[in-house]
């Protein structure tokens, strides 16, 4: 059964002048960890706000737990958990006071659902008398998650929970989400970091208010239409320019240590020629087929659209 369904949702701002999202349809299954992946301004927050009943869509319908986001907003509000992107808790309340407050507001108590947040809460419990404003970024994030979970929601919406957080804290956060999934909570999470996509069960790639693709991360990678190569050489910046000007290369993007390239039809047949001509100008040229990442797919889909 689908837990969250969007059917042709469109939303504009400034009386229709600014398009936020257009004709978006997808559904999230019960107990699924679903990722909404896209850069800032893609429309992720707008979708989250529509699903959490904070915004009315211009057209289209959306259901959460079978309830309509417009008509049954009260029901939805008592069932879901939401962590907005700029959610910063009450900085002048202590850890304990924050948690207590949100528990009460959501008609619950810390004791009632302690088992759900226990694993996360024990990590910040030593600081429970500290004001939230004096916590580290990672700890704030954990507290915010506890606050969003304290009433045992059926669906959890996390809008960019890892933005601006360092790699170590990000890894920890995703570990926590995996454990929550085991508890049967449906989780919708958005992120601008493409490398986090593979940590979700299914993902929707979103750009400029439109969905580029929806599938499992593996499925999206398999749909990558061309052969992808990784290439490196001594002078990577020069190599990038040379590859771009080559008629044999279709696309070329820097990907960390390597550049990822796809070749034209002619290029595929004459890979050796390409390699040979590059070796004339570059030292230590290495070229090998490589598996696309979600970011490769995103770029490809972005350009196709």
């Amino acid at each position: 059964m689908a837990d969250v369904t969007l059917d042709r949702i469109t939303k504009t701002y400034n009386k229709g002048q600014t398009k936020a999202v257009e004709d978006i349809s997808f559904s999230v299954n019960e107990g699924e960890l679903f990722g909404l992946i896209g850069p800032d301004g893609a429309g992720k927050t707008t979708l989250f706000r529509i699903l959490t009943t904070l915004l009315l869509p211009d057209t289209g319908t959306a259901l959460v737990n079978g309830c309509d986001v417009v008509k049954d907003y009260k029901k939805i509000r008592s069932q879901v958990g939401y962590m907005p992107g700029k959610f910063s808790l009450y900085q002048d309340l202590t850890v304990e006071e924050n948690l207590q407050f949100f528990a009460t507001v959501f008609n619950s108590s810390i004791e009632e659902n302690y088992d759900l947040i226990k694993e996360i809460y024990v990590q910040i419990e030593p600081f429970k008398k500290r004001r939230a404003g004096n916590l580290s970024g990672g700890m704030k994030q954990k507290l915010a998650l506890c606050c969003a979970l304290i009433h045992r929601p059926t669906v959890l919406f996390l809008d960019e929970p890892t933005t601006g957080v360092d790699t170590v804290s990000r890894k920890e956060f995703w570990e926590m989400l995996k454990r929550l999934k085991v508890q049967g909570i449906t989780i919708l999470v958005s992120t601008p970091y493409m490398d986090e996509a593979t940590l979700c069960e299914r993902i929707a790639l979103i750009q400029a208010g439109a969905i580029l693709s929806i599938d499992t991360p593996q499925g999206i990678i398999e749909q990558f239409p061309e052969k992808l190569y990784a290439i490196k050489a001594g002078n990577m910046s020069q190599l990038l320019q040379d590859l771009r000007s080559s008629s044999l290369v279709a696309t070329c993007y820097a990907f960390g240590e390597y550049h990822h390239i796809t070749l034209t039809e002619e290029g595929e047949q004459t890979t050796e020629n390409l390699l040979a001509s590059l070796k004339e100008q570059h030292a230590e040229v290495q070229l090998s087929p490589t598996k696309p990442t979600i970011e490769d797919c995103f770029i490809k889909l972005m350009q196709a659209s």
Binding site: R49, T52, T53, L54, K74, R77, S78, V80, Y82, M83, P84, G85, K86, F87, S88, L89, Y90, Q91, F102, V105, F106, N107, C147, A148
Partner: peptide, 13 residues
């Protein structure tokens, strides 16, 4: 401004 209003609105309160 702080974003806490969003959470309060998405509560049964």
């Amino acid at each position: 401004e702080k974003g806490t209003m969003e959470v309060l609105l998405v509560s049964p309160f």
